[in-house]
Design a protein around this nucleic acid. Structure first.
Lengths: 353, 353
DNA sequence: GCTTCGCGCTATAACGTTCTAGAACGATGG
DNA sequence: CCATCGTTCTAGAACGTTATAGCGCGAAGC
């Protein structure tokens, strides 16, 4: 209750607590860890002493002594909003599994190699990489050292675990939805070389094909950002499809903004579908119809896989876990206007597969 | 060059390197730290052995042994885009000062108290808190234990260092700019209880006062998010000021979106100024005139202050460092239309100071 | 030739924790 | 009364690193 004035100088250690409680150091350790081997009365006394001295265990020393550190390293991009959702999920999943997280950010001035290097020094037992841009060969080298789980990007290598959204299926959902509404001229704004972009492009093509609309395919170069979307919108205005699926929500926001500013009503003149269900899409004045990635499930599986590898249950199922997304229908999609439904989409530019 | 197959089992330690190089363990330590006390020939030999074994120093053990950990804890919000910029800056500043950073995120499921607690266990020497919501009393308790630097929020307590943008001055810049353009009916969309909101509100009032426009003050309740901005926009449409300063860029984006959708031209019918110069504002299709916070300078000062405290130069200047912002003029501000410049703004709602 | 250096290196002890043995003790069982 | 056991505790070592002290040796100074 009456916590001692925390001295600015030396940190209070197990030895301090032991001295005050009149017991040995290991016994204090036993009490602090809730390990068996101490009487109820002693526990009480030790806990009181610890409380009074404001004792905090030193995780460095603890991990040094233990064979296991129970520490999972996470590399994330500090700019990418969706990584925020993933980090949140990872914290709760790790918490439940009784693991700790060590965060290492990728910034404009700090590349993935540095981020990983610092985690290696911290003695993490496993690595979770969010949408890494590292070449597969380096990922494989890492995976030879320790369990590596890559999130949100496919990796063709036996040693690397992958948890990702079924990007192709996401575009099937989007296209199916638009076809159900009556659209036939459906364009796609591409993500270029971004993680997942190739899969989404493939899903778009497959879905059109499945509906017998393969010859209507129109792929406009885009990217990850609002600016990329704005640029793509100008091409869309020229080509005038009745609907468009966009690589992600940020890009879709750029598309929306330019379309509306240029007098193209959404969803009246053109329907728009995003990808991610980021907080952007949920904004009431945007109300973007979008493909939602299940961040909670993805992160839970990523942590579960790391834990399984570490606990030796390496016989676990599949190396690559592909999570189905789901469609969130909001206000940017509707049936095409009758007068637009007929005319064929003009082909502007098609990126090669 | 030919790095040994990294054994999945035990980690390679100084002892392994020492054995291979045929020297003692402390000597390897000396070489790895580039400390004086080893001949050039030995250095070469040891480095080669370390390389071959793929040795990585164990930062836990290192920090345990050293009196200093040279570790600075950072608490940041995983959702807030501006925190991303700040974290980037902190990394480079810490790097230059030869300190390491330990990141601890605040998420919907992990409050600031937990974030701080985990950093304390990691044995950080100082804490940098980005826009914390913790009560001043708790900040003061922390500051009694270790140097605490709060960024982007004023704190009235002797023990806590503060580095923040001069929010009031930022609104002076914004209002001056608008007045220069010829505006007299300038509204402000408020940030409520968000960090910095009170200062910006005050700056807005002072600036209007300074230009003899105090009786034109119009403060519309807002918030931090696009949705808050969208709601505020509806009030603005009713009140019809010719210009508006908005709490931050996200909120301003919401304002812009609704204004344009409702047929209010920006900047034709209404000028809009944001705050933060976030990536949002820089987007070419948004091109928001905004008050820029100097993230690089803020983070450099925050780290410098932490280092000064730790090195004992506590005689350092001011406890609170207030960084002047600057105005970035883009495309959302212009002179008011002649027919609008005359009529007085109607008062909709004024939040109490 | 003896001290006095300085240099390159090693031995030993820490840092704060947890693990492994084992000691002290009363209770139980024959 | 002695052996056995379980409980509660302590002594000592260990994790991987770095700080401190000191050793051996050739060079310089008297």
């Amino acid at each position: 209750m009456t916590e001692e004035l925390p001295v600015r100088g030396r940190r209070t250690t197990l030895a301090d607590v032991a001295a005050r409680a009149g017991v040995s150091v290991p016994l204090v350790s036993i009490v602090m860890r809730d390990a068996p081997g101490a009487s109820a009365a002693t526990r009480e006394r030790v806990r009181k002493a610890a409380e009074e001295l404001g004792y905090r265990p030193d995780s460095r020393a603890r991990m040094l002594r233990r064979s296991r550190t129970r520490l999972i390293g996470v590399v994330f991009g500090v700019q990418h909003p969706f990584h925020g959702d993933l980090v949140s999920g990872l914290y709760t999943a790790a918490d439940a599994a009784d693991y700790e997280l060590a965060l290492s950010a990728v910034t404009p001035g700090r590349d993935e190699r540095r981020a990983v290097a610092s985690l290696l020094q911290d003695r993490c037992e496993a690595l979770i990489l969010l949408g890494p841009a590292l070449p597969t060969s380096e990922l494989a080298d890492l995976a030879a050292r320790m369990p590596v789980i890559v999130v949100a990007r496919p990796v063709r290598n036996r040693a690397v675990d992958v948890v990702r959204t079924d990007d192709a299926a996401g575009l099937h959902l989007a296209v199916d939805h638009l076809v159900d509404l009556g659209h036939t001229r459906i364009a796609h704004v591409d993500g270029g070389r971004a993680p997942g972009a190739a899969e989404r492009r493939r899903g778009y093509r497959e879905a059109l094909d499945h509906h017998g609309l393969a010859d209507q395919a129109l792929i406009v170069p885009g990217g990850l950002t609002e600016d990329d979307g704005a640029a793509a919108a100008r091409e869309l205005i020229a080509a005038r499809p009745t609907a468009v699926t966009v690589f992600n929500d940020r890009c879709a926001t750029g598309v929306l903004d330019v379309l509306r500013r240029e007098g193209v009503a959404v969803p009246g003149d053109m329907s728009v579908v995003g990808f991610d269900d980021s907080s952007l899409a949920r904004l009431s004045h945007v109300a973007l119809t979008t493909v939602a990635q299940d961040a909670g499930r993805i992160t839970a599986l990523a942590v579960a896989r790391a834990v399984a590898r570490l606990d030796g249950d390496a016989a676990a199922d599949e190396r690559e876990q592909v999570i189905p997304p789901h469609l969130v229908v909001r206000s940017t999609t509707a049936a095409p206007r009758a007068d637009l439904a007929a005319a064929p989409a003009r082909r502007v530019r098609t990126s090669s597969a």
